[in-house]
Design a protein around this nucleic acid. Structure first.
Lengths: 354, 354
DNA sequence: TTGAAAGCGCTAACAC
DNA sequence: GTGTTAGCGCTTTCAA
C-alpha cells in the first residue's frame, strides 16, 4: 500500500500519467523519452506532445535505481572554499566531461558530527565512482568505510592500503622547497604550518619531515622554535603565525609554508612588517595554485604534479569502474595501486636568484 | 524478469541478504537499521551482527526513491574554482549543517554541450531543494526548466520571474565603487571586464551600468575606450587586459574591476608596469572575497552582502520546501519573492584616503 | 514483537 | 510497433 501523500493538489507527473494521457503503455513512453527505436512516428509525436503539455520530467532517482548507475562521480573534499580543491575539481570535471559523466562535489567537513559524517559517506554510494581527498580525514573512518563503490584516494598517505591511492610526494616536495631556500642562502627557515612529533602521517607532518631532511642533507642545524603550527591552514592563520613569531622575537630569513594559501598570508604579514621578500626573507609555498602567479611577489612553490594527479586518479577510477560493472569483486582484482607523483619546484619571485 | 547481471562473483549485499542470513524479515532489518522501536533486543543484536559480517550498507538511491526525499540540497555554480562560489558554498553548507542536510555542488559549465547541460539539469531533481547561481546561465534555459523541485536563484537578474530570487545590487554596488574612485580624485576610470550595448541583463552589463550612473551623477565625462572586455573573467585575463590597455596607449588613473579576481590580476599587472596603487591608479573590486584582505595592496571592494545572501537564499528555500512537502503546487503559493540585498563599500588599501 | 505485501518511478525481457 | 510484466532495494501500512 502506498504511503504517498495523495494530498489535494499537484502531484508530480510520472511516466504513468503520460502513458495514460497519450493512451499508450509506459514502455512506449520510456522509449520515446530515451530516444530508442521501435516506436511509430506518430505515436512518438503524440507522446512528445503529452510530455510537453504535462511538463513531464523523468525522475532520476527511479531511473538510477533501475539502471544501477548514476553517471555521476563523487568528489569528497575537506573544504569547499580552498583554491587547491576548487582547482582539482575543475580539472577532474573537465576530464570527465567527454565521458558524459558529471562531477559532484561534497564536503567531508573535518569538524562534522559523526552522525552527519556517516550520512555524508552513505550518500557516496549513489555515485558510480568516488574520489576522496584524504587530507584531514581520519584513516579509521576510511577503513570502516567498506565500500562497494569504486574509490580512489588522493592526497597524503593514510594507513590502510584498501583503496587505490594517488599520492603527492609531500616529503620530497618539502625537502626540495627547503633545499632551495638553503641553497639560496637562508639559514634560519621557518616551517610555517609544520607539525611535529606526531606519529600521524598527515600532510603537515610529512611536509615537516621533508623540511628536516633537507636540513640534514645540507648539514644545517635546526631550531625547534622555527616550526610553527597553523590551524586551520588558511590565509588568516598564516598571517597571524608570522606576526606571532616576530612578536616573540624569533629571527628567521626564510619561510617554507605548508600550503600556498598559508604562504600568501605570510607574504601579507611580511609586507606589513616592512620585511622585504626575497631580499630579507625568502618564501616558498606548496601546491602551485593559480593564485601564486598573481601574488606580490609571485610565489615560488612546489607543484605536486597537479595535472598528472588528476589524470592518474581518473585512470585508476576508470579501471575500477570497469571491473565493477563487469561484476568483479574488489578483492578479486589486482591489488590496490599506490602511486606517488613526483613534485617539481616552480621558481618565481619570492626566492632569490642563484 | 530481472535484468541484473547475475554474473559470477560478489553481488552487492542487500537488505534481503541480511534478512535471510539473520532469519528475519526485511521489515525487521529495516527497523534495526533505522533505529526504530518495536524490535526485540536479541533480534536486533543478531541483525546487527549479520550486518557487520556481511558488510551491508543501505542503498541510498532505493531509500530516496521510497522516501521521496534525499536530504540533500543542490548548488549549481558556473565554475568550481572561483573563490566567490567556493565561499558561497561554504556559507550555505555551514548553515545547512544543523538541519541535517548535505550541500552538493555541481558545475553548470557555461561551455557545455546542450546534451550534457540537460543531463546536468535533470540531476537536480534528485535534491530536495536547489540553489542556482544564474551567472552566465541562459535565461531561456532556465525558463524551460519547469521544475517540480523547490528552486531559489541567486545572483544577477534574469528575465523570467518564475523562481524566488536573491539578487545582488549590481548596479548600485558598481555605482558606489565608481563614485568612491571619483570622489578620491580619479577622472579616467577603466571599467575592467565591462560589457556594453547589450540588451542582456547579465552581471558585467549591470555593473557597467552602475559605472555609467556614477559618472552621470557626478558629471564626469565618459570615454568608450575605458570599457575593456575581460573574458573569461579570471586573474590571467584581468592581467592581460590591463597590459593591453597600457600597450594601446590608453591612459587611466582608476580601475573598477568587474570582480575581485579580475582586480587581483590587474594589481599584478600594475605592479609589473611599475604603476603605483593607489597613488597613480586606484583600484576597486567587487565581491569581497577573502583574498582581498591579503593582496598587496589590500583591495578596496564592494561587499554584495554575502552573509545576508546566503541566509536569505536558505530562508526562501526552506519556505518552498515546506510548501512542497505539504503537497502544495508551486503556483498556489504566494508569488515568487525577489529580493535585492544592499551592497556595501569596503575600503582597504587600493584606494586613497579622503 | 514480527512479517506479508504493496509500491516509490522507471526500464528491459519477452511475447504478441 | 506495442504492451505485459517483473523487479531495482527499500520502507511502511496493516494484520497476526
Amino acid at each position: 500500500m502506498s504511503t504517498r501523500k495523495t494530498s489535494s493538489a499537484s502531484r508530480v507527473v510520472t511516466i504513468g500519467d503520460v502513458a495514460r494521457a497519450a493512451q499508450v503503455s509506459t514502455t512506449t513512453v520510456s522509449k520515446v523519452i530515451n530516444g530508442l527505436p521501435r516506436v511509430g512516428a506518430e505515436t512518438r509525436q503524440r507522446v512528445l506532445e503529452v510530455v510537453a503539455e504535462l511538463g513531464y520530467q523523468v525522475n532520476p532517482t527511479a531511473r538510477n535505481l533501475r539502471a544501477g548507475r548514476t553517471d555521476a562521480i563523487g568528489l569528497l573534499v575537506p573544504e569547499l572554499d580552498r583554491p587547491y580543491f576548487g582547482q582539482l575539481a575543475t580539472r577532474l570535471a573537465n576530464a570527465l566531461e567527454p565521458t558524459g559523466r558529471q562531477l559532484v562535489v561534497q564536503r567531508s567537513g573535518v569538524s562534522r558530527a559523526d552522525e552527519l559524517a556517516a550520512a555524508s559517506f552513505a550518500r557516496l554510494r549513489m555515485y558510480d565512482g568516488v574520489i576522496i581527498s584524504v587530507v584531514g580525514l581520519n584513516p579509521s573512518d576510511l577503513e570502516q568505510l567498506n565500500f562497494q563503490t569504486p574509490v580512489v584516494l588522493v592526497g597524503e598517505r593514510p594507513l590502510p592500503r584498501t583503496f587505490d591511492h594517488v599520492m603527492m610526494d609531500n616529503v620530497e616536495g618539502a625537502a626540495t622547497a627547503t633545499a632551495h631556500l638553503l641553497e639560496r642562502g637562508s639559514r634560519r627557515i621557518v616551517m610555517l604550518g609544520g607539525r611535529d612529533g606526531t606519529t600521524e602521517q598527515d600532510m603537515p607532518t610529512l611536509r615537516t619531515l621533508g623540511y628536516y631532511k633537507a636540513h640534514a642533507r645540507l648539514g644545517v642545524p635546526l631550531d625547534a622554535r622555527l616550526v610553527a603550527a597553523v590551524l586551520p591552514m588558511d590565509m588568516a592563520t598564516g598571517y597571524a603565525a608570522v606576526r606571532s613569531l616576530v612578536d616573540a622575537g624569533v629571527t628567521f630569513d626564510g619561510i617554507v609554508a605548508v600550503t600556498d594559501v598559508v604562504a600568501i598570508g605570510a607574504l601579507r604579514a611580511l609586507a606589513d612588517l616592512g620585511i622585504r621578500v626575497p631580499a630579507e626573507v625568502q618564501v616558498v609555498g606548496f601546491d602551485n595554485i593559480d593564485e601564486t602567479e598573481f601574488s606580490t611577489p609571485r610565489l615560488t612553490t612546489i607543484d605536486p604534479g597537479n595535472e598528472q594527479i588528476a589524470g592518474t586518479v581518473l585512470q585508476f577510477l576508470e579501471t575500477r569502474m570497469a571491473e565493477h560493472s563487469a561484476g568483479l569483486p574488489r578483492t578479486s582484482s589486482k591489488p590496490t595501486a599506490e602511486v606517488t607523483i613526483p613534485a617539481r619546484l616552480v621558481i618565481r619571485e619570492s626566492t632569490r636568484r642563484a
